[in-house]
């Protein structure tokens, strides 16, 4: 078996909301074309950590990063102030907790990222939209009504539409922030199957508070608590033989 290559290297990452330190000295390697799950009790900083990868924190004042996240292979530090957050977001896409389609047609929702990049060639757009919708396992359901408003879709379909939107720009990393927390079990299992499928092509980081979900979709899991990484390793190991007591207590449901 070929050794996994590293896609992103998190080094000594600290993060502050004003004076409040939300992430403490995080060190972690994200592996290419693997699913990495971030788990932990609410408020442990997992979403905060995830949002560092596409610089979402830059949208609000008084937020501060320390340390670095090195993106391979070109070795740029994506949280450095010298790097434009917009460039980072164009390379690293995100799917949110609640489906958030735009008030546009299904087609335009998927094409959004390309439009933002100034691509307006109809043929190119149509190709990419189809490919992305197929990638998000939504094509067969919507191919006859691409010009209908995205709001007509069900919640699960909307979330897959958001995945298609994120895929359309060929991201290097795809971030999922509790993508199924607003969905019913059937829609959830569809999204989970999709994530497993997607990792063949893209590196995935997923935040979830559903441990079964982490176990089902990820190869690597990081357990976070109070802004720190307590334990990080192969998912099977974290869930069957955790080396930290805290991890074990969380996994066995003694707190959380």
């Amino acid at each position: 078996m070929v050794r996994d290559s590293i896609k992103a290297e998190v080094k000594n990452l600290n993060f502050f909301y004003g004076n409040v330190q939300a992430l403490k000295n995080i060190n972690l390697d994200i592996l290419e074309k693997r699913v990495t799950a971030l788990i932990g009790p609410s408020g442990c900083g997992k979403t905060t950590f995830l949002r560092c990868f596409n610089r979402m924190h830059d949208l609000y004042p008084h937020n501060r990063y320390e340390g670095s996240i090195i993106l391979k292979p070109d070795d740029i530090d994506i949280i450095s102030p010298n790097i434009d957050p917009i460039e980072v977001r164009m390379r690293i896409s995100m799917v949110f907790q609640k489906p958030n389609p735009f008030p546009k047609t299904i087609f335009e929702n998927v094409a959004y990222g390309l439009r933002v990049r100034g691509i307006s060639n109809k043929k190119v757009l149509a190709e990419v939209v189809e490919k992305s919708l197929r990638g998000a396992a939504l094509w067969d359901e919507v191919k006859d009504r691409l010009d209908k408003p995205a709001f007509d879709l069900s919640g699960g379909q909307q979330q897959r539409l958001c995945i298609a939107r994120a895929l359309a720009t060929n991201p290097e990393i795809l971030l999922f922030d509790e993508p199924t927390s607003a969905l019913d079990p059937i829609a959830t299992s569809k999204i989970e199957e999709l994530i497993v499928e997607l990792k063949n092509n893209v590196t995935i980081i997923i935040v979830t508070h559903n441990m079964q979900q982490a176990a089902r979709v990820s190869e690597y899991t990081a357990f976070m608590y109070l802004g720190e990484i307590i334990e990080y390793g192969k998912t099977e190991k974290i869930f069957t033989a955790p080396s930290e007591k805290l991890t074990e207590e969380y996994i066995t449901g003694r707190f959380g």
Binding site: L59, I86, R89, M94, Y112, G113
Partner: peptide, 15 residues
């Protein structure tokens, strides 16, 4: 307009 709609756009690299 809810913040998560806005974030959806920013996350795609929009200005």
């Amino acid at each position: 307009v809810p913040m998560h709609i806005r974030e959806g756009s920013y996350a795609m690299g929009a200005t």
